[in-house]
Amino acid sequence: MQWFIYVLNGLYFTAFIFLISLGLNIILGVMGILNLAHGSLYAIGAFMAAWVIITLSGLKGVPVPLLYISLISGALLAGFVGLIIERVLIRPMYGRALEYQLLITFGALLLFEDLIKLVWGGEAYYASQPFDILGKIQILGNAYPLYFLLVILVTLIVGSAVWVFITKTKMGIMLRALSLDREMATALGLEIDKLSTIAFVLGAALAGLAGSLIAPTTPVLLGFGMEPLILAFIVVVIGGLGSLKGAFIGSVIVGQIRSIGIVVFPEIELAILFLIAAVILVVKPEGLFGR
């Protein structure tokens, strides 16, 4: 039953990459902005969560559940930083050519790399307590870390909540309207600035949450946001620009192909994802579910 574990590994990777690409896609879909600083928001979430966990672990008498609740801290800080980015950097860029947005978000990426160094220093942060405490369980004769199942569960809950928010609530409907036709939404009197801020903060918080969830599984270090940013772009290319369904299906495809690819074609584990993205770009440039 080793294949079951391969699928589970793929699901874990799907969960991690889905949260990042979902945030990227919300910002892209609603605001039409390709946020190159999205990886930095993920890194900020990871650093914040790691710092809080390490600090709490150093105190006496801290209840264990608090360590898990503290994972939210990364999402909160990333959301707050997202608010500042949107107000200060992004808002003046509305209506300008795509190149300006790319330049300003790339500049933000470089800026945040130094800011992270300034705030948290250059050392790696090891905050594995939430991972270690949960230990492992046996699934069909194979050991599996319980924390990874927790990440999958949290992602399912958060993903569902975002779906309900976007499709069922008034605010979500307004965000969708904005993503479909910005001019028409403006003409109808929607508060574009407020909606843009909400979309950006939500996207940033999702990236931060992904960073928070990953922090207990690996040391957090400078340059932490680059790998997930590239993977999120692959998901967006495969799933389609601005599509929530696309982000989900794209993440599942990336997660499972990576997991199975590492077993079957270990020499080309990275290339295989880029190959699929290249094929999609040629055959269906808008992505599987893009508009």
Binding site: Q2, G10, F13, F16, T217, G223, I262, V263, E269
Partner: peptide, 19 residues
């Protein structure tokens, strides 16, 4: 197996090794 430097998720590699 040749995972990139600073990989954060080795689960697929580890399962492949076990296999």
């Amino acid at each position: 197996w040749w995972p990139p430097l600073f990989t954060t998720d080795y689960t697929a590699h580890i399962s492949a090794l076990i296999g």
